[in-house]
């Protein structure tokens, strides 16, 4: 299933990308993405920040949505492609609540 992307002009004039993965990501997945692209992953309870030299991705372990605020558009495209692959490879994180 393709991930859903929407561009949004944020306060202060910055363009950001909201990504809907169709399911909430795991901490492990987000750490892997950060490490692969030279970023740093920090967790604050359910909130996750992936920090890169050109900006931040804000994610949540509760939500399928994450927000990309990166000035480096090449990096942004690479990470979006990575997220797409991740969703295709792993499918729904939890299909059934037991």
């Amino acid at each position: 299933m393709p991930i859903q992307l929407s561009k949004r002009r944020e306060c202060g004039g910055t363009w950001v990308v909201d990504v809907d993965l169709g399911r909430s990501p795991t901490g492990e997945e987000l750490t892997t993405v950060a490490q692969r692209y030279g970023g740093r992953c920090r967790q604050f309870q359910q909130l996750i920040w992936l920090d890169f030299p050109s900006g931040r991705i804000t994610a949540s372990l509760r939500l399928s949505r994450l927000t990309i605020r990166l000035e480096d558009k090449t990096l942004e495209a690479a990470i979006i492609a990575e997220l797409q692959q991740l969703v295709e490879a792993n499918g729904p994180a939890c299909a059934v609540d037991l």
Partner: peptide, 18 residues
């Protein structure tokens, strides 16, 4: 503006939303 944006943010949905 501040709270409107906060209440639409991923941080709000994660921390306060539940």
């Amino acid at each position: 503006y501040t709270f409107g944006n906060i209440m639409e943010s991923l941080e709000w949905e994660t921390v306060v939303g539940p």
